[in-house]
Design a protein around this nucleic acid. Structure first.
Length: 644
RNA sequence: GCCUACAUAGCUCAGGCGGUAGAGCACUUCCUUGGUAAGGAAGAGGUCACCAGUUCAAGUCUGGUUGUAGGCUCCA
């Protein structure tokens, strides 16, 4: 007899070898029906797993998060079986559950196409309807390797070979088909249900290494119920509508041109308004925070980038050199070396520090063609850049005020979903990916960590994500379609100032090396605007909206008055258009709504005679009429305060 | 860069088997002068991404180039 303790403290005395399923059945038939898997002493096991010793047992039902993960994982297994039965000779590799679904990577001479997905899905339904049991077996390691090698499954054999020595090699059979798997699994394929869908095919490198062969990955999504599946698919559709590439086109914000080159956006007048507004915001807050503005050239000699370390650590992301009078020149990927030169152009004393140099210059980075993505990943980018040179004592304060600056920006834009990440170096990559200063790395990382903790900011630590010259804080956000991006960044540079012989004369008359903070609270204008488009779904607050309002005349009898209103709006710095087409008011309103123009000023007989405008706002509708003067004063307040 | 797919009017898209292009919206003109999400009519718009090849004939078939999309890898 063994003792089995349930989560509520109940202790059951049972014969050794009893299974989770049997215990569930003993409790209630309803529970047995709902049960998916058990947690035995903290480890997930199959319902059919024989319990042989005193244990703590938790029975997990279909509604648990774990169950959903297992449904997805099993779905991957069933897909693999379907694929191998339909396309003999295809090798299986790995097939995990992921957020929203699962994937499986296959090795096959001919990659799958979208047409294959339908056939595979049909076969999967068949396997699920057949209600096949998942059976766990523990195999001898050598036998397992031999088995998979004989089957021509070289990837599986390799996976087993690389498993830790002490780990059991478990095999799951589903009917005639079997796969190496840690488990656990559902009792039968029927438990997977029908709420899944194969989504897309993609290439993926074996073990995620681009030096390895390319496998074919099939992505699927799977849910507990059809309702959940439909909700998810619907969410994807809604997200597509927010896609900055779609809205950017519809609102004429920016465009790309084949003859200009990929990743090189052309900002149209409407989009340039957004850039200008962001710049004004940045200039305003940076002036207040004691920054000085500078301007530096777009191309520079290679020798400067040798000194900065860019050529040894960052060359892959730089456009190739151009030869000018026998010298190699590069397009600048970052502003730091230039700012360092500006710092070095004069002797500096401790009294001047901190020195804060800001620049809204364009940088150029060579991104591989496959990773360009609308405005979020481009090759020419305008940075909201600055470098702060300070003493070690000043560091914490400076670093935190930068963090506060981007939190201030986030508040203005109503950005609530973000994650701050402290990116640290990977000691194994010192001298390669990172400058070879092991002690300075640790010391600086500690300095940053301390600053964040003292500032009571929430953050997570990610090793191996630092910049080549120092640790950084990245602020991560997610695009409408769920891609993750770094929006703002705040980096410490401890190595470069000494390479550039940057010094200041300290109180004691001795030369010392300052610390340098790189910071870009608005990231690049391209990415920031791409993100804002999705964040607002194109419905920008008034201060940002490229076209703030449109004047709609009820008939062309009122065009003269409309012109005079337009003139007064312009004189007050308000961006307005007139819609004087020979159309009905309803049609004009509709067009303005579709174009996401926040305010409509309707003008007819009544407004002309009373010197008013009838105000209609997007999302709010008809707000009645106001004296033109009063309207302008109100709206100016809203614009100047950058209200949401 | 790698894998897969796609590229037709300003936008969204039709164009089984090869026979030199079509819709809706937008645009222009005319009629209409209408009070809070589509009034009517007519017209103009395309070297079917580009370059080769096959063919009597290519938007359609083949190859290449460029660009775009979804992934992988990499990053603000």
């Amino acid at each position: 007899m063994i003792k089995i303790t349930l989560p509520d403290g109940t202790v059951l005395n049972k014969n050794a070898g009893i299974t989770g399923m049997e215990i569930a059945e003993g409790i209630s038939s309803g529970l047995a029906k709902q049960s998916i898997v058990i947690e035995l002493d903290g480890k997930l096991r199959d319902l059919s797993f024989p319990i042989t010793k005193d244990s703590e047992l938790k029975i997990l039902k279909k509604d648990s998060d774990v169950a959903l993960e297992i449904i997805r994982h099993d779905c991957a297994h069933v897909m693999a079986e379907a694929v191998q039965s339909l396309y003999p000779g295809t090798q299986v590799t790995i097939g995990p559950a992921i957020e929203h679904g699962f994937y499986y990577d296959f090795a096959r001479d001919k990659p799958f196409t979208v047409d294959d997905l339908e056939k595979i899905e049909k076969k999967m339904h068949q396997i699920i309807d057949d209600e096949i049991e998942f059976k766990r077996e523990v195999w001898n390691r050598k036998d397992a390797i031999k088995y998979f090698e004989n089957e021509g499954e070289i990837y599986k054999a390799q996976i087993i070979n690389d498993l830790p020595e002490d780990e059991d090699i478990t095999i799951y059979r589903q009917g005639k088909w079997l796969d190496l798997c840690r488990g656990p699994h559902l009792p039968t394929t029927k438990h997977i249900g029908k709420s899944f869908k194969l989504m897309k095919v993609a290439g993926a490198y074996w073990r995620g290494d681009e030096n390895n062969e390319m496998l074919t990955r099939i992505y699927g999504t799977a849910w507990r119920t059809d309702k959940e599946l439909r909700t998810y698919l619907n969410m994807l559709k809604e997200a597509e509508k927010r896609d900055h590439r779609k809205i950017g086109k519809a609102m004429s914000l920016y465009t790309f041109d084949e003859e200009v080159g990929s990743g090189l956006p052309l900002w149209l007048p409407n989009g340039t308004v957004l850039i200008d507004e962001l710049e004004s915001l940045a200039k305003e807050s940076e002036t207040q925070a004691g920054y000085d503005r500078v301007k530096t050239p777009h191309i520079t000699k290679g020798s400067l980038y040798e000194k900065s370390g860019h050529l040894s650590h960052y060359k892959d992301s730089m456009f190739p050199a151009m030869d000018i009078d026998g010298n190699e020149y590069y397009l600048k990927p970052m502003n730091c070396p230039h700012h360092h030169k500006i710092y070095a152009s004069l002797p500096r004393t401790y009294k001047e520090l901190p020195i804060r140099l800001s620049e809204y210059g364009t940088c150029y980075r060579y991104e591989k063609s496959g990773q360009l993505f609308g405005l979020m990943r481009v090759r020419s980018m305008q940075m909201n850049d600055a470098h702060i040179y300070c003493t070690e004592e000043q560091f914490k304060n400076e670093f935190l005020s930068v963090c506060k600056m981007y939190l201030y920006y986030f508040k203005i834009f109503g950005i609530e979903k973000y994650e701050m990440r402290l990116s640290l170096h990977d000691p194994e990559k010192l001298g390669k990916k990172y400058v070879d200063e092991p002690e300075l790395w640790l010391k600086t990382e500690d300095l940053v960590r301390q600053a964040l903790q003292d500032g009571k900011l929430n953050f997570v630590e990610i090793p191996g994500e630092a910049a080549f010259y120092g640790p950084k804080i990245d602020v991560q956000v997610w695009s409408a379609i769920g891609k993750e991006f770094t929006l703002a960044t705040n980096q410490v540079d401890f190595a470069i100032p000494s390479r550039f012989d940057l010094t200041y004369i300290d109180k004691d008359g001795k030369d010392k090396t300052p610390l340098c903070i790189h910071r870009a609270p608005l990231g690049t204008h391209e990415r920031f605007i791409g993100f804002l488009i999705e964040h607002f779904a194109g419905n920008f607050p008034i201060w940002l909206a490229p076209i703030q309002m449109v004047i709609i005349t009820i008939s062309d009898k009122f065009n003269d008055y409309a012109e005079s209103v337009h003139k007064q709006l312009k004189a007050n710095g308000i961006r307005a258009n007139i819609d004087s087409r020979s159309e009905k008011m309803g049609a004009k309103i509709r067009l303005a709504e579709i174009n996401k123009i926040p305010i409509m000023l309707i003008i007819g007989e009544k407004e002309v005679s009373e010197n008013t405008v009838s105000v209609r706002r997007k999302f709010k509708g008809d707000l009645g009429s106001l004296k033109l003067h009063d309207f302008i004063e109100n709206i100016k307040k809203e614009i100047n305060n950058r209200l949401l």
